[in-house]
């Protein structure tokens, strides 16, 4: 049971993307063939197998909860598409 074009539209919506109709159709074909290829993995017996979290079995490193960064506001804001007084500007969200 493959995905339909309307499923593809729904996934695009979840991923915050919007495409042309022809792109949805192309993706429907491609994603279905990729999922078919993936299905081989789903047949494997993995009972009692723990999922991998870190390939070498390390646990996540933690650091002390201390501020380390220097003041780089200017550098960060220099990459902003639209800014005013060190604030990122976006279209109005509250009426």
């Amino acid at each position: 049971m493959g995905l339909s074009v309307s499923d593809i539209r729904k996934i695009a919506d979840l991923a915050y993307m919007k495409m042309d109709d022809s792109e949805y159709e192309e993706l429907e074909r491609e994603i279905n063939s990729i999922l078919e290829m993936i299905a081989e993995m789903q047949q494997v017996d993995t009972s009692n197998i723990k999922p991998v979290s870190h390939p070498t079995g390390e646990t996540q490193g933690l650091r002390k909860d201390q501020a380390t960064a220097t003041d780089c506001t200017k550098l960060v804001m220099a990459n902003a598409p639209l800014e005013q007084e060190n604030l990122f500007l976006v279209p109005k969200v509250i009426d």
Binding site: M41, V44, T46, P51, V52
Partner: peptide, 29 residues
């Protein structure tokens, strides 16, 4: 875009165990 779409699908509600979790188990094999 193609990979974001596949990724979004395999992580979407109800599919996580069948795809991502399963893949990390087969990865252990």
């Amino acid at each position: 875009k193609r990979r974001i779409m596949i990724g979004t699908y395999v992580l979407s509600q109800g599919y996580y165990d069948a795809y991502y979790l399963k893949a990390q188990q087969v990865r252990q094999l």
